[in-house]
Design a protein around this nucleic acid. Structure first.
Lengths: 238, 238
DNA sequence: CAGGCGATGTGATAAAAATCACGCTTTCCC
DNA sequence: GGGAAAGCGTGATTTTTATCACATCGCCTG
């Protein structure tokens, strides 16, 4: 049992929507249960849906010809994701893999378009949300390119703590079990490298493990390695 | 002189706007001349403007504490860029450096917001544009993370050819002089590594140089290295 | 409870990329 | 046109990261 868990501090990526507008979005979605291991969409599929993750965990991935895979995003309860360009006939460039049995709300592009036409203020919040998501991608891009693999890992741990963290005192527990391989695929490294880097962080007391969950003990150390600028938490996510 | 130049094939990033709406945007911008080496904005500045690059060249960069720099985007004639989230009080995360004397159109956030409120169809095209820019970032991110430095360089050359290419026969001339250091900063590598990789490509006849401009001789080779999926040209940009 | 399997941990080695060093070339500009 | 500065090219070396190989651990399942 996780004796560290007290309160979920992780933020959603829908902070920019008002209650009202989030409600309007919820009215046009239909609920669906999806099972672990299945895919919401594949690269190449027509991108005509938006997804609201009511409960569960979903990752956005890309696989190379040699079978290496890259995890672009990982979403949790309350996150909105999917094709980011409404009104644009296009195709998914990534896969959406269900990591745990999940409940999602599906929004059809057509319905979203209608809603955006009807409610100018929702359209505006939607733009805010799109902008925020883009900045999230940009800052992650920077973190993963500029500070070597250790920097990429530290940035990822910080982002995981913002997305899925529960804090108690100065500790933050990441409430998602992650394998070394998953972490590796998030930063474009190998499992072995991640394993060694995590060992180093453990030796330094920067992180600890409890029950295969990662606990961040020294956030400042992590922030230092990837030159964290204390961006808003709803932007600094995984 | 460039005897290869015949026709500019490079696309802008404003393909998703209709003539009419682009015109409306132009009406609310005011023209400004900026000189090489100056900055349109710095990280930390309030992000309250959108820029239309009428003529010139501007790059979006980030500098690390140790002085390493990373080039996130490079814009040319006809490109629109800047803070991507209207209606959102926020701060730039990157710098915009003027690479050559340029003429830009500046759009104030307030004016843009008014225009978006007034014209639903513009708002929708604006969302399309935001989505397109985000996908551009995502696909570049993937290219730079998944295929090693050679893959990153090949992807960058392809993107440069889409942004700034002029084709004649099967050759494509990149109409922007780039130093090895600039290319290095675009892919998170060192000047020396870029130099060696370019030499290799030259030996293989994949590229050639004329007058310090890069000419792509064998696009298929480049596409192969970074597993190009032939995304639309307005998305596959630098 | 035994066997299997996915995950972890770690050494040895190889490959990739950065760093250092330095000479050469091109460009800029006074 | 001459000198400085910026950029290029390339060896030698070091650092970083991946690859390979294998032992172990924990947990699920029959």
């Amino acid at each position: 049992m996780l004796h560290c868990a007290l309160k979920v501090d992780g933020v959603h990526n829908t902070e920019c929507f008002s209650e009202d507008n989030l409600e309007k979005l919820k009215e046009i979605m239909y609920e669906q249960k999806v099972t672990s291991g299945s895919y919401l969409f594949w690269e190449g599929d027509t991108a005509d849906k938006l997804y609201f993750l009511i409960q569960g965990r979903i990752k956005i991935t890309k696989t190379s010809d040699e079978g290496k895979s890259f995890i672009l995003y990982m979403y949790g309860d309350g996150d909105l994701f999917g094709q980011l360009d409404p009104f644009h006939q296009s195709v998914n460039s990534f896969n959406a893999e269900v990591m745990e049995d999940s409940t999602i709300g599906v929004i059809q592009q057509k319905d979203l378009e209608t809603l955006l036409w009807q409610h100018g203020d929702l359209a505006i919040e939607f733009m805010k949300w799109m902008g925020l998501m883009h900045r999230m991608t940009q800052t992650k891009f920077r973190d993963l390119m500029m500070f070597g693999k250790p920097g990429a890992l530290c940035s990822t741990l910080i982002r995981l703590s913002n997305s899925f963290g529960q804090s108690s005192g100065s500790q933050i527990l990441i409430t998602k079990k992650l394998t070394n391989s998953e972490l590796a695929d998030m930063i474009g490294a190998t499992r072995e490298s991640v394993n060694r880097m995590l060992s180093d962080l453990k030796k330094l007391g920067v992180i600890s493990m409890e029950n295969s969950y990662i606990i961040i003990e020294n956030m400042n150390y992590l922030k230092n390695v990837c030159q964290c600028e204390n961006c808003p938490k709803d932007m600094c996510r995984i």
